[in-house]
C-alpha cells in the first residue's frame, strides 16, 4: 500500500488531493436546509402553554378599566424585561 505522502516533501499525492477537494465540495458550508427546517420547527413556541392561556393584558390602564367594570382585583406580573415577549 502506498503512503499518502509522496516522499520527502510530504506533499499529498494526486488521488488524496482530489479526494480532499471532493470532500470540501460535498460538505456544505454553513447551515443545511435540513438543519434550518429542524431548528425552525424546534424553536417555535409550543402551540399550547398554560401560562399563555391566561388572558394577559399589556396595558395597565386598560386592565384597570376592565377590573373596575367587573369589580375584580388586578394582578400585575411586573418584571425587568416583558414577561410575554422578552426573555
Amino acid at each position: 500500500m502506498s503512503h499518502p505522502f509522496s516522499g520527502e516533501s510530504h506533499q499529498y499525492n494526486a488521488p488524496v488531493r482530489w479526494l480532499a477537494g471532493l470532500a470540501l465540495f460535498l460538505v456544505p458550508e454553513g447551515l443545511s436546509v435540513t438543519e434550518f427546517e429542524r431548528l425552525h420547527r424546534d424553536l417555535a413556541p409550543p402551540a399550547v402553554e398554560t401560562w399563555r392561556t391566561i388572558p394577559w393584558k399589556t396595558s395597565l390602564l386598560e386592565a384597570r378599566e376592565v377590573a373596575a367594570r367587573e369589580k375584580k382585583p388586578l394582578f400585575l406580573w411586573a418584571m425587568d424585561g416583558h414577561p410575554l415577549a422578552c426573555t
Binding site: T58, L60, V66, E70, L74, A78, M79, G81, H82
Partner: peptide, 8 residues
C-alpha cells in the same frame, strides 16, 4: 382577577 403583564 384581571391579569396584566408589564415590563416595569
Amino acid at each position: 382577577f384581571v391579569p396584566v403583564a408589564l415590563d416595569q
